[in-house]
Amino acid sequence: MPPVGRVLVCYGTDPRATIAPNTAWSDEEEQALEDDVKVLLIEDDVDAAEMYRLRLAADGYTVVTANDGREGLRMATDEAPDFIYLDLRLPGIDGFEVLEALRADPETATIPVIILTNFGEPELRERGLRLGALEFLVKADTTPGQLSESVGRATGPRPSPSA
């Protein structure tokens, strides 16, 4: 997982020591930093996907969307996301199969995954967590704001816009 922030360590005579550690990020730097966290939404409900995309983008994340399981797996490799939201009911292969495949591929095995579904049955939740999902969120009970916070929990705090 790429870093979401930078720590400057300055030593004696290094010319870079002139950069103060707490210097505010320039706009370009801030943008570059925010672009660092890429979220993959694997979600077949295009209206829901668009809503989450709007919110996550507003919080500074880069969002890519896949509308079915196979496309999701392909994008998990091609786009190298830092984080994945995974729906369970998907056309073709379902979310559990996607999660298993993600975990089995060394390239994607460590990407944090949160299951985002409208199924709330405890046995599905247990199965998802057992397969390695970080969290199991029910869409109707999770506002886009709470959703965005869950990425933060997994990838570290976002820089404050005024930093």
Binding site: D45, A48, M51, R89, N118, K139, A140, T143, P144, G145
Partner: peptide
């Protein structure tokens, strides 16, 4: 499940509108 799908979008947009997001 079927009822939660539209409900999730309704609640989601309502919360984003009320947060001024």
């Amino acid at each position: 499940h079927e009822l939660r799908s539209p409900l999730g979008v309704i609640r989601g947009y309502a919360s984003m509108l009320s947060e001024g997001m």
